[in-house]
Amino acid sequence: MSDYLKRGNLLWEGSRMMLPEHKQAIRAQNEQEKRVDPPLLDQQELEELGIVAMESLSYTIPVHIVYWEDGFYRKIIAAVERVDQQQKRITCRESAEVSITIEISQLKSIERI
């Protein structure tokens, strides 16, 4: 056998270099692949979400909320503070100083704790 064939992988050794731009592009592509579509809920599911949200609003009890934002699902535990039916939004209070407004179309689930 010639020395050329015994070199192993040395022929491609120079292509192992990764520039920071390459790493950044690979990470961005992986992040893009993890994204999910916004939830599509039917009328019955929306009514169930509304019932739990109104209970939280009436009795000021915390609920577990899962909602879609920028391609990912976010999870919070908060009490519903306001339901705006005209603008189709709910406002939730996580703590004394943190309040979040969520579009109803972005809600995936609201569950009692």
Rank of each mutant, 00 (worst) to 15 (best):
Y4M: 04
Y4I: 11
K6C: 05
N9P: 07
N9Y: 14
L10M: 06
L10W: 06
L10K: 12
L10V: 04
E13Q: 09
G14V: 03
G14F: 08
G14M: 06
G14W: 06
M17P: 06
M18Y: 06
M18W: 07
L19W: 01
P20D: 12
E21T: 02
E21A: 03
K23F: 09
A25C: 08
R27S: 07
E31D: 06
Q32E: 07
Q32S: 05
R35S: 00
V36L: 05
D37S: 15
L41M: 12
L41W: 05
D42P: 05
E45R: 08
E47R: 12
L49F: 03
V52T: 14
V52S: 08
V52C: 07
A53N: 09
A53K: 05
M54A: 12
E55G: 08
S56Y: 10
S56L: 07
L57S: 11
Y59W: 13
Y59F: 15
T60D: 10
T60F: 13
I61D: 03
I61C: 02
P62S: 02
P62D: 04
P62T: 04
I65K: 03
V66Y: 10
V66I: 15
Y67T: 03
W68H: 14
E69R: 02
E69T: 01
D70T: 08
D70P: 05
G71S: 03
G71M: 05
F72G: 00
F72V: 03
R74F: 03
R74K: 13
I76S: 00
I77T: 15
I77A: 12
I77L: 11
A78R: 08
A79M: 14
A79H: 15
A79P: 04
V80L: 14
V80H: 15
E81H: 15
R82V: 02
D84L: 05
D84S: 05
D84W: 04
D84N: 07
Q85I: 14
Q86S: 00
Q86R: 02
Q87T: 02
K88W: 05
R89C: 10
R89D: 09
C92Y: 09
R93E: 11
R93V: 09
E94W: 02
E94Y: 01
E94R: 00
A96H: 12
E97N: 10
E97K: 14
E97D: 12
V98I: 13
V98P: 06
E103G: 01
I104V: 12
I104T: 13
S105A: 08
Q106F: 01
K108C: 09
